[in-house]
């Protein structure tokens, strides 16, 4: 359509004119492509009019639902705890979970390595979003567009942590998380792959992960300190 062409030409012009916050960085999902990609989830999850919980919970109304909220489904302890801490599925939290399940909910039973391609992720999310409440009808229902968070820069991800510094800092962690890796009421953080550790701590810092104590603790950790802790705990055998 003619007007569409003009609009994209216009949008291109605007990006030049208006860098910064006005040119929002957003990734749109393609519902049809998302449906095709969802076939890899179908072994465990159902969505749609007749969907029921099977190996995994059904995904109707997932946006806006609290984690672990389907009463007839048996979730992992970790997922139950996340729900009790206030984790609710929206574009940010579900996006983070689908990108890397264990970085958001450490002990989830969902054995899926995550959607690493941002477009795949956006497409699957768009497909799932179409089975939750429509903001047109219920304005308070979850957003349908995920404004991309300021992702961690490659420098932060590539940072080599100083494990010795991490050992020093870890004294604050081991008050609650036991160094021997036991997990009674509080999850174990030993032997945690450093990339996941870094993602998880930044998820708390950005309040993506819900736990208030961890948000407070991670909130005052610098990028270097997170990298140092990750290096230390990765090699800490239980």
């Amino acid at each position: 359509m003619g007007s569409r062409m003009r609009i994209s030409a216009l949008a291109a012009g605007l990006l030049v004119l208006l860098p910064g916050p006005l040119a929002a960085q957003t990734l749109q999902g393609d519902t049809e492509r998302g449906e095709a990609l969802f076939s890899q989830c179908k072994g465990c999850h159902q969505v749609g009019p007749e969907a029921e919980s099977r190996i995994g919970p059904h995904l109707n109304g997932i946006f806006g639902r609290q984690a672990g909220a389907i009463s007839e489904f048996r979730y992992s302890k970790s997922m139950q705890r996340a729900g009790a801490d206030g984790l609710t599925w929206d574009h940010d939290t579900l996006g983070a979970y689908l990108a890397n399940p264990r970085s958001l909910v450490s002990g989830t039973r969902m054995s899926f390595r995550g959607l690493k391609d941002p477009q795949d992720l956006a497409d699957v999310m768009a497909f799932l979003r179409s089975y939750s409440d429509n903001p047109r009808d219920i304005p308070e229902s979850a957003p349908t567009l995920r404004a991309d968070d300021p992702d961690l820069t490659p420098e932060v991800l590539a940072m080599q942590g100083d494990a010795e510094f991490g050992e020093y800092l870890s004294a604050e962690c081991t008050t609650c998380h036991q160094a021997d890796g036991s997990a009674e009421g509080i999850p174990s953080i030993t032997n945690w792959p450093s990339e996941d550790f870094v993602m998880a701590m930044h998820a708390y810092k950005q309040s993506l992960r819900p736990h208030p104590v961890m948000q407070m603790i991670a909130g005052r950790l610098s990028d270097e300190e997170i990298a140092a802790l990750a290096a230390y705990f990765e090699d800490l055998a239980p």
Binding site: T26, P135, P139, E140, A142, P143, A147
Partner: peptide
């Protein structure tokens, strides 16, 4: 009250953020 902000995507006006 309930409210939200929206952005134009190619496909639709999409909800980005909101409050209730």
């Amino acid at each position: 009250k309930v409210g939200a902000t929206y952005e134009a995507t190619e496909e639709k006006i999409a909800k980005v953020d909101g409050f209730i």
